[in-house]
Nucleic acid binder design. Sequence first.
DNA 1: AAATTACGAAACAATTTGGTTTCATTTAAT
DNA 2: ATTAAATGAAACCAAATTGTTTCGTAATTT
Lengths: 125, 125
Amino acid sequence: MAESVSKHDVFQAIADPTRRRLLRLLGDQEMSVTIISGHFTMSRTAVSKHLRVLADAGLVKDQKVGRETRYRLDPEPLLELKKWLSYYERFWENKLFSLKRYVESDDPAVMESFPPLRVYMENEE
Amino acid sequence: MAESVSKHDVFQAIADPTRRRLLRLLGDQEMSVTIISGHFTMSRTAVSKHLRVLADAGLVKDQKVGRETRYRLDPEPLLELKKWLSYYERFWENKLFSLKRYVESDDPAVMESFPPLRVYMENEE
DNA sequence: AAATTACGAAACAATTTGGTTTCATTTAAT
DNA sequence: ATTAAATGAAACCAAATTGTTTCGTAATTT
């Protein structure tokens, strides 16, 4: 299961809004480059380059069929993102959730569910 | 709950590996700019600019304390990412999970759990 | 066989990004 | 009152990003 080191990483790949639109589009259906670029105002070549970035990140796969190249979504690399995000779950669970309760409750006792404020330390790590 | 339109979006903000390291660092503890930049080889000013990008995306909050500026994580904007990602859950649940079962099972009957291949249509949307 | 279609490569340009060094300002320490 | 520390703003630079147009090539139609 060796993760091949891709030229572009997922974080980089999804940073661009056009590429996020592409992923959505290809989630519905496999499509040729010309059909895909019909959904955008930019040139076909520009779309093609975005597809290349997505392919380098492993987010899409391409397949030659006759003279056309069809792209389809491969969501697998998004698992890395999911994993990265999961680290921050605890912050939502602790801080934000209790904050929401506090804001919505009007009950000062709820304040106790807050974790103590962190102390600023000079020598961390 | 009007989402203020931030100058930088979350996707953009987390695209840079340095900024992802910053988020991790600030998750542990609130810190001053000097202390933070002590964790990086680049200049303090460079780190400061990364912090600015994160702040523009709402991912960190800053607070002036005397002559120093302390930054802390604000994970809330990551919920947008989580929401975006959730769209792709169905793909993992369908395609990948069944693929994994297929690959690992050696049982050709498992093949039936695959959804039919999508037909290429000229006129979508 | 000739024309058309689908596509990527290449060269180019504008803008953004990610870094630097220098400088001014505010606050704290001596 | 000076000096030192903490920081952001500004000017600058190299490289990457995002787009364009032009061209060549392979496959399909006519």
